[in-house]
Design a protein around this nucleic acid. Structure first.
Lengths: 257, 257
DNA sequence: GAGTGGTCTAGACCACGAC
DNA sequence: TCGTGGTCTAGACCACTCC
């Protein structure tokens, strides 16, 4: 990484710095490598540390850098593609690989907000199963699956051991029996609250991709899943089966032009 | 908005501030209303302006605030749901409403990156149509649609007026004749580069949701679309038809628990 | 203890919009 | 001209990791 001075340009310094640093990490550093520390870099480029950090913030948001307190700033690995489209990926008992892991389960009457979202009366019993999604040993997402009691009514009861995670697994086993007619999803940007952040092993405020899924069964809403994926490491894929299987396009095409 | 002092807590000041401000804008301000300016707020809470700005940055990332230079900071409208799932939404000539608008078109031999992404030889002619997507009068996305010449070979030629936008429309009209077998999508977080930012009427570095779509026809890749949606104002929806149509869930369910 | 990123301060000046 | 948010500075101290 050179000692280039910043030229006078109309664009903000931090944005120009970002461009220079991006070029440097693309050409001079390998994945996982530690780049020079913030005090060094700010001195080299002749800017305040805060300004340099603004540039690093951008690159971290783009998933190109990872900062670890006490360690340094590393070049991030390319984002991993996480399938979220096919029914098997979200619905219990579907996929061959065990990507979801149950954490716990809460049973509570529906609040006003939750009742409206689930289309059930306020106060109806709702099971909320908390799960985390693992991908190559990494926690990439956490999810709250809300299931109203009425959706489970027609299904045989399954005795649980009573513990939170066991209770959750019992709910999921009952759901496996349910026929899902279809699902509807939405994706938006959010930030991780304290509890989610802890599960994702990230600080609060970490940007996440919030995936809201409505599962329908028998013409009515059977469950609502709100999943938060780490935006820094994940690329959500919505693949259809039976198509050309092209190598997943990295973000490279965007910057090519 | 009160004059509450910050209590001593283990969490960072800016994060606590965010929580306090979020509660305030939820309860005391209407959509589009201007909240007190940054110098006022920082004085009220007894923090430096930079710290207050860190809290506002978070809320802006969550789409709860909009900051306008020279004007002030406004409470943002709820995100609009933008359908991206159904084929009709992305493919030319599909949808009833004219949500896409052609900007221009470039014709150039495929670079190494683009050739790899399109699965064609390096140097093959590729049409790149630039479009913007309007939603309720607002530009919500910009897209580069890359079409290799070979995908158009079997289609009748359509004479264009030669201008950039006209040339682009001619390419799109030819594509309308093409049967699309299916599509495969990926969504990830990115930031707007200078040209995209200009089309989206936002400063460079604005967070965007990057939607990469591969269109297949006749068992091979026919086109590649890279669209960037404003992350602050958009919620991408991937709906299936013929399902229960529930009111779109706002982000409220996340914060309810 | 030394080195790293994370947080916070108290200022300054600039670019933009409204008047 | 004035008030707004946007950028930038030069420091300080803290929390964490490693040796």
């Amino acid at each position: 990484m050179g000692t280039a001075q910043l030229t006078a340009v109309p664009e903000p310094k931090y944005w120009h710095l970002r461009t220079v640093l991006l070029r440097a990490i693309d050409s001079e550093f390998a994945t996982g490598e530690v780049i020079p520390n913030e005090r060094d870099l700010s001195a080299r480029f002749g800017v305040a540390r805060a300004t340099l950090r603004q540039a690093l913030d951008q690159l971290e948001l783009e998933g190109r850098l990872v900062r670890r307190r006490g360690i340094g700033t590393l070049v991030a690995a390319p984002r991993v593609g996480v399938p979220v489209s096919r029914r098997e990926e979200g619905w219990p008992g579907g996929g061959p690989e065990q990507s979801w892991q149950t954490v716990d389960c809460a049973i509570a009457p529906a609040t006003e907000q939750l009742a409206a979202a689930l289309n059930v009366p306020v106060g109806e019993t709702v099971y909320t199963v908390r799960r985390v999604r693992l991908n190559q040993g990494q926690t990439v997402a956490t999810e709250s699956l809300h299931v109203p009691d009425s959706a489970l009514a027609s299904l045989p009861e399954i005795r649980s051991a009573g513990s939170g995670a066991d209770e959750g697994r019992a709910v999921l086993r009952r759901l496996e029996r349910l026929t899902v007619d279809g699902e509807s999803r939405a994706v938006e940007l959010g930030v991780a609250e304290a509890d989610e952040a802890a599960l994702l092993q990230r600080p609060p405020g970490t940007p996440v991709l919030v995936v809201t899924t409505q599962f329908a069964s028998g013409g009515k809403l059977a469950a609502l899943a709100v999943a938060t994926y780490r935006a820094d490491t994940c690329r959500l894929t919505f693949g259809e089966t039976g198509l050309v299987e092209v190598t997943p396009v990295a973000g490279t095409v965007r910057t090519a032009s």
